[in-house]
Amino acid sequence: MHILLVEDDAALATHIMAGVREAGHVVEHCADGRDALVRATCECYDAIILDRMLPTLDGLKILAALRATDDATPVLILSALGDVDERVRGLRGGGDDYMAKPFAMSELLARLETLARRNAPVAETTSLLRVADLEIDLAAHSVTRAGRRIALTLRELRIVAYLARNAGRVVTRTMLLENVWDYNFDPQTNIIDQHISKLRQKISEDNEAELIHTVRGVGYMMRGA
């Protein structure tokens, strides 16, 4: 992936670039708001990581200017303004995802992956998802594994669907919380883990292969075999 990083803090930028490069992406960096806008409109990136508080131009202004030119490049806003309101402003302003500083590199990478994919033609409208021998029919609200029907609650269905859509990619706990639950809140305990473990019990019976894998310290990943 070709990624543009807009971040004025040099040390943090170096760290992010190192992480993103290590994950196999090409990354360009710029520290100034105007410069960033010029580059974003001239070149074609797969995703943009955008800081909010920049010299000369606010990140949200860059975003607005970018969206005004019908540019749909996925933008991940990265900001020290982590409050719910700021988050909502960022997303309403055209951001595709919002992360508060400080963040874990793994979380950033996981989000970048899903962002870039979201832009790909494999639209979210697909109602049939398949991972190994697991089949999810969203329209019919049914989940089957190797022909065996699995009874799931609506929430469990949403978790499975989200994981399946991002099959092969890491999904962090925060991402699950944001995408599967309709409340914007911060649970004090890792309740998500309990939901996943229940889900695992339902999906994988005794001798079936595990489909939901734990990525230590980061989150989960769904993949066959």
Binding site: D9, A11, L12, H15, I16, G19, A80, G82, A100, K101, P102, F103, A104, M105
Partner: peptide
């Protein structure tokens, strides 16, 4: 926040 982000990064 920013230094903390750097710290976690390091």
């Amino acid at each position: 926040r920013t230094p903390l982000a750097r710290l976690i990064g390091r």
